[in-house]
Amino acid sequence: MTLTLVDLTHPLTSGMQIYPGDPEVRVEPATSLADDGVVVHALQLGTHTGTHLDAPSHSIADGATVDRLDLGRLVGPLHLVDVTELAQPGRRIELAQVAAQLEQLTPGAVVVFRTDWSARFGQPDYLAHPFFDAAIAERLLAAGVTVVGVDTLSPDRTDATAASADLPFHEVFLGAGGVIIENLTNLSAIDTARDPWISALPLPFTGLDGSPVRAVAMHRA
Rank of each mutant, 00 (worst) to 15 (best):
P23W: 04
D35R: 10
P168I: 00
T31K: 14
P107S: 07
G37I: 08
T84P: 05
H129V: 00
A215G: 13
A163N: 01
V179E: 00
D191W: 07
D70R: 15
R73L: 05
L80T: 01
Q104H: 15
V110L: 12
M1Q: 13
G177D: 10
G178R: 09
R139Y: 08
A193C: 05
V81Q: 00
I181T: 06
V110C: 12
L53V: 09
R114N: 02
E94M: 14
R214A: 12
D35T: 09
V147E: 04
G144H: 10
G178V: 13
V213G: 07
E138R: 13
V98R: 01
H48M: 04
T192N: 05
P124T: 00
A30L: 15
A96K: 13
L203F: 09
L45Q: 10
A162H: 06
L43G: 13
Q104C: 15
A61W: 06
A137R: 04
A160H: 06
E94G: 06
I180T: 04
T106L: 11
L208M: 14
R139H: 14
I190M: 08
Q123W: 03
V39H: 03
V25D: 02
A135N: 08
G72V: 09
T65A: 08
T146R: 12
D54L: 14
L203T: 05
L140I: 02
A30W: 14
V39G: 03
R139W: 08
A137T: 02
A193W: 01
T47H: 09
D133I: 01
D67M: 11
R26C: 11
R68Q: 15
R91F: 11
L78S: 02
A163V: 04
P130L: 10
L201I: 10
R157L: 02
D133W: 05
L141C: 04
A160N: 03
H79I: 10
M218T: 07
V111Y: 14
T2I: 10
P20V: 00
M16I: 15
H170L: 06
P56K: 13
H219G: 05
E171W: 04
R114L: 12
A61Y: 05
P196Y: 01
L105D: 11
S57M: 05
D166S: 11
G149T: 09
D54Q: 11
F121R: 09
A64I: 03
Y126S: 12
G207R: 05
P20S: 06
V213Y: 02
R139V: 01
V39Y: 03
V40K: 13
T115P: 00
T51V: 12
G108C: 10
G37V: 07
D151Y: 03
T206P: 04
E103L: 09
L141I: 07
G63R: 06
P11W: 15
A193H: 10
F113E: 01
T206R: 08
D7K: 14
G37A: 06
A221K: 02
A34G: 05
G144D: 06
L167G: 10
L74G: 00
A109S: 13
A42L: 07
R194P: 12
D36K: 14
S164L: 15
A193S: 14
